[in-house]
Design a protein around this nucleic acid. Sequence first.
DNA 1: ATGCCGACAGGATGTCGA
Length: 260
Amino acid sequence: MKIATWNVNSVKARLETVTAWLKDAAPDVVALQEIKSTDDTFPRGAFEDLGYNCAVHGQKTYNGVAILSKRPLEDITPRLPGGSGDDHARYIEAVVTGDHGVVRIASIYAPNGNPLGTEKFPYKLAWLERLHTRAAEILSYEEPAVLMGDYNVIPTDDDCHDPLVWMNDALFQPQSKAALRRIENLGYQDAFRACDSRPHRYTFWDYQAGSWQKDHGIRIDFQILTPQALDRLKTCIIDKRVRGWDKPSDHVPVVSEIDI
DNA sequence: ATGCCGACAGGATGTCGA
C-alpha cells in the first residue's frame, strides 16, 4: 500500500497540482494538511472522480486536515482527545483495510508555535503533549499505524541548511525537539530515516528568499510508524519534484510503500 | 530587515505561516 502525507497549503488553490500529483504517484492513502477549507467547501468531487474516499476535518481560512483513500475509511475520528476549547482542525484519524490487514492512519498538522514569547508556543507544546497521549494509546493496539503530517519540528541540525538561522524559531526549540522525541521514544520510528540516513533532505522550502533554488529547506513532515508498520515498510521517499511544479505548495509529499 | 512569498477574507490591507 502506497501511503503519503502532504501539506498542500490550501486544497482549493492547489487543486490542479494535487490532482496532477495523485494521477502521477497513484497513492492508496494520502493525509492532507492545511486544506484551509471547511467540510462543505472541500473539493470532494475532484478526488472521488480519481477513486478516492474522503474523510475531512475542515475549518474556515486556517488549518484543516483530511485523509483520502482508495479503500473505505472506517472509524473516522476528526479530533485529538483532550484540549477542551481548542477549535483548531489539526487532527483526523481513520482505519483502512488492505490486502494483508488493517492500518490506522492519522493526518497531523501540529501548531507552528511562533512567535516565541506568545501564547502560541505553549499551545504548540500542549498540543504535542496531547498527541503523545494519543500516540501511546495507538501503540497499545499493537497494530500497524502511520501517524503522519506536518509536525512543525526540525528534529536535528541535519534537517536544515543552517541551524543558526533557526535558533530563535519555535520549530527548533529544545522543547519542540524533545516533544517529538518523546513521541518517537514510545516506540515509533521515522519512516524516512529508517530508509535514508543522508543529511539535508527536506520537505519544506519557504516561498521567500529563493529558498528552493538555494536548497535552503527544512525537514518537518514525517511519517512515524508503530513497530507493526515498520516491520512491513518497504520504501520511504520525499517527492521533491513537486516543489518545482507550477503553483507549488511550500511542502512536498512524503511517500511510503508498506506491505499492508 | 519587524523584509523577501503566498493564501485568505474581503473588497484594502492585515493576519498567518515556518
